[in-house]
Design a protein around this nucleic acid. Sequence first.
DNA 1: GGTTGCATGTAAATGGTTACATGATTGT
DNA 2: ACAATCATGTAACCATTTACATGCAACC
Lengths: 185, 185
Amino acid sequence: MDARTLCLGVLQLGDASGYEIKKVFEEGVLSHIYETSFGSIYPALNRLVEDGLAICTEMPQDKRPDKKVYSITPAGRAALAAALQQVPAPDRIRSDFLFILMFGHLVPRPHLERLIDQRINWYRDTLARIDKCDTANWSASAQLFAGLGRTVFTAAAEYLEQNRHLLEQQESPTDRNGPAAAVAE
Amino acid sequence: MDARTLCLGVLQLGDASGYEIKKVFEEGVLSHIYETSFGSIYPALNRLVEDGLAICTEMPQDKRPDKKVYSITPAGRAALAAALQQVPAPDRIRSDFLFILMFGHLVPRPHLERLIDQRINWYRDTLARIDKCDTANWSASAQLFAGLGRTVFTAAAEYLEQNRHLLEQQESPTDRNGPAAAVAE
DNA sequence: GGTTGCATGTAAATGGTTACATGATTGT
DNA sequence: ACAATCATGTAACCATTTACATGCAACC
């Protein structure tokens, strides 16, 4: 799924500007499954218009650049439907936090603790973002999507809260001398 | 975290060849948090050696290319420790499956059902990969890492199994005429 | 007076994937 | 006979991120 398809998906939910699309990936429904930057959204929208998959309506605004509101076209809908029926690529996850946790014994414990605090907060924030969505009139599969997110983030937050105490027995690398060396070899 | 740091992490766990490192990200401990390809691993290992963060021992093998076994150096350990203490970048997730699920009403139901079957299997497979790891002599934080993975994937699999029936009420786009149009607008 | 939010865009740089190139061994 | 596993590597390609460029309004 490239940026173009992602934008089509958001436009399928309703007309939007590039700025608004970014917000959907930042604080909206899709914030926990994809991230994007302006540098990918704006070019994607231009290509969508070029290819006839979206149209753009310029809304003049006083004292601001024109707001360009994009709408999906029938061809766009067809393209989205086709993309959705492709074999999905496996999830691509890159989690610095999890990597650090795996090697947490190489890191000062207070630092690790702080990271865990932050991660729990992030789970809670994400949960709040999901709950903020008014899913009442969503399709059944979109509700399944939202519920899955809720389930996973709740489970993760609870697990960390309930199990972080396991770190207490662990020595911090600054507590001793031959730090990393003690673990491998 | 770039490919170099990821390789350092694996080497910290024990000496390995490029091929073996890839397996760690494919079927090993880190399979659910990062993915890599040979095209990123081999150049990364070369740079690690150039920078003195790893050393390479060529093990001649009969009838096969020399196996190049890499070992982390003290400088490499220091570099890894430093990288682990950087502020972690937010998780970067790209999930085609979740995106498709969000727009599942645009896809024929049998197709969606198949995807869900596959996803449950993938969760189960990942769980099996995690359980296959012998975590007994892992550090506390590595065990927390493994436990978090177990928790999250278990919760996800169970959620999908228990709630997929919600899709039953949903009409498939092939069931009716104006398909996508019914949802937006 | 500084930061945040609104609003769009481009260009360079980064980084990674995909595809190619090679080849023996082992299992089906 | 064919596929998979072992084993390494390069180069072209691709997408995305980052940084830059601009500027007003509202809030603190």
